[in-house]
Design a protein around this nucleic acid. Sequence first.
DNA 1: ATGGAAAAAGCACGATCGGTTTCTTTTTGT
DNA 2: ACAAAAAGAAACCGATCGTGCTTTTTCCAT
Lengths: 196, 196
Amino acid sequence: MRKGEATRGRILTEAGRLAAVNGLFNTSLGDVADCCGLSKSGLFKHFDCKEAMQEAVLMDACDRFVAFVWVPVQHLPSGRARLEAIFERQLDWETVENAAGGCLIMSSAVELDDRPGPLRDKLHDRLQQWRRVLTREMMALSDPPLDYQVAKMAAFEMNSFLLGHASAGRFMGDGDAREAARAAFRRLLDRTERAD
Amino acid sequence: MRKGEATRGRILTEAGRLAAVNGLFNTSLGDVADCCGLSKSGLFKHFDCKEAMQEAVLMDACDRFVAFVWVPVQHLPSGRARLEAIFERQLDWETVENAAGGCLIMSSAVELDDRPGPLRDKLHDRLQQWRRVLTREMMALSDPPLDYQVAKMAAFEMNSFLLGHASAGRFMGDGDAREAARAAFRRLLDRTERAD
DNA sequence: ATGGAAAAAGCACGATCGGTTTCTTTTTGT
DNA sequence: ACAAAAAGAAACCGATCGTGCTTTTTCCAT
């Protein structure tokens, strides 16, 4: 009852890699099986149906995101240092960690944006939760805390720069994308702190 | 030799609509045919193969984008007024014009970001061309023109806010997304003008 | 350690669907 | 009315999802 968990984990990461490249709905069970060195049905026994696998893959990607971006910055005190660390980790997340295919969460959000269903709902919840975290962190940028609306706006801009980075860097092949996003974010923090 | 052109146009718009919802690679010929009231093979005669249809659909979307966003602002003088009009039109493009499925160009960029091939190349060219236009417009924000690097940075931020708007508004269902993007963009123009 | 239960993986199959071709029928423009 | 274009019908082949049934591996109790 322990080997199964291991291969299940392998399936999730491998399927995640494939889904990041080909899209969540464009990854066949056969491809995943080949990629894991399993047979189609050997793989299939780990999930109830294809949608269950997609959901597991997506949730696993969310978990890995949290582990990669959030956990390492938890020890930092709330405020500018932690925000900059989050931003930096998230830049890394789109480049190093997901070298091939970009961020599965982002591409799935685009894929699911008009496909109602449990998958969409689950991802929606996780993303909204993350947005709340960012807004809260943004409020902690000054003491006394920033106004909620101001922090929400700043979180919107922060997220926009990350999306801009992914777009410019990944698809457009712009080598300066990382620096551009970083600079835009620093200026955002500067003026948000100043406005207090 | 004239009816064919008409139905070909109908196919492109209908297929574009479907592709915006299901993804460019997840739209089957059968679905498109049904949606157009054609038979699979009747539809197929309009293109050499499926990839040719995908390319035609994507290029048609790009043409419609230019007609919707760029053409109506051409009569305005370069500068702030034109930039604001462009931004506003692009916000509209993501909501009104593409009510179901969001912007095909954006979702295709995500889908194609790791699929080398003629499709990716053609879209890449069109998007880079548009980025150049935006940078040029941004330079015209002040007289004498802004430094190229400064304008490029501003164009990056402008594009980021549009992506942020699409993400927050479409997938996250945030009703304030439009206002947030607009406000962020106004502030961007303000400080870019001021920095001169 | 070892034998047997339970889990994991393999094999083969059926049904379906997707892109493509060929051939035929309808429609269109002159 | 006739040639050419446009659309339809039927079928092919390959890939894919999902399902038994069988075989191997793992693990635990004796």
